[in-house]
């Protein structure tokens, strides 16, 4: 048998012993702590990642909420603004109408007053004209009847006209 493919008993025994010793030493003092540490760290990283993920989700939720609130607020603001605009418009139009009416009333009153005043003035003027005409007529009559002949003539004429 070729020595290359003949396992030597001594080496078999030494390899077995050495390998088992190595295995137990490494398993107890190296692999256990190493694997434990790696697993622990991985778990920690996973935890952290999931926490970060949760935080991100929470953040997204909050942002969404904020957005919704903002949207809501914007809609409300718009509603309020349009309401206010409507109110303003109506107030203005009401005020305009009121002013219009008031003006018309004032004008009406003024016209009535003017008419009244005119009537008064007219009456006054008529009175004065009447007075003046009377005065004029008096003066004319006085002038005409300064001499007594004329007065007699008139009386005579008037008497003539009177039919008894």
């Amino acid at each position: 048998m070729n020595p290359l493919v003949t396992p030597e008993i001594g080496l078999v025994v030494w390899t077995t012993v050495s390998f088992l010793v190595l295995f137990f030493l490494l398993a107890k003092f190296a692999w256990k702590p190493i694997m434990g540490a790696i697993d622990e760290r991985e778990r920690f990283i996973e935890d952290s990642l999931s926490k970060a993920e949760a935080a991100k989700d929470e953040m997204a939720r909050l942002t969404n909420e904020n957005d919704a609130l903002l949207k809501q607020a914007r809609i409300e603001r718009d509603a309020i603004l349009s309401e206010a605009k409507k109110v303003k418009d109506s107030i203005i139009s009401e005020a305009k109408e009121a002013a219009h009416k008031e003006g018309a009333r004032q004008i009406e009153l003024a016209r009535i007053e003017i008419n009244n005043q005119k009537a008064i003035a007219m009456a006054d003027v008529k009175n004065q004209v009447a007075t003046l005409s009377l005065e004029i007529a008096e003066k004319v009559l006085r002038k005409q009847f300064e001499d007594s002949s004329k007065q007699d003539a008139l009386v005579a004429e008037l008497l003539k006209e009177v039919k008894l």
Partner: peptide
């Protein structure tokens, strides 16, 4: 023949290398 041959010596050297490496790695962890 249970001699400490070249292969056994080499194997022990390898063992020492492994033990040194992984004990230090383990203590680092």
């Amino acid at each position: 023949d249970f001699s400490i041959t070249r292969n056994v010596a080499s194997m022990w050297m390898g063992m020492i290398v492994l033990l040194v490496i992984f004990f230090s790695v383990s203590s680092a962890y």
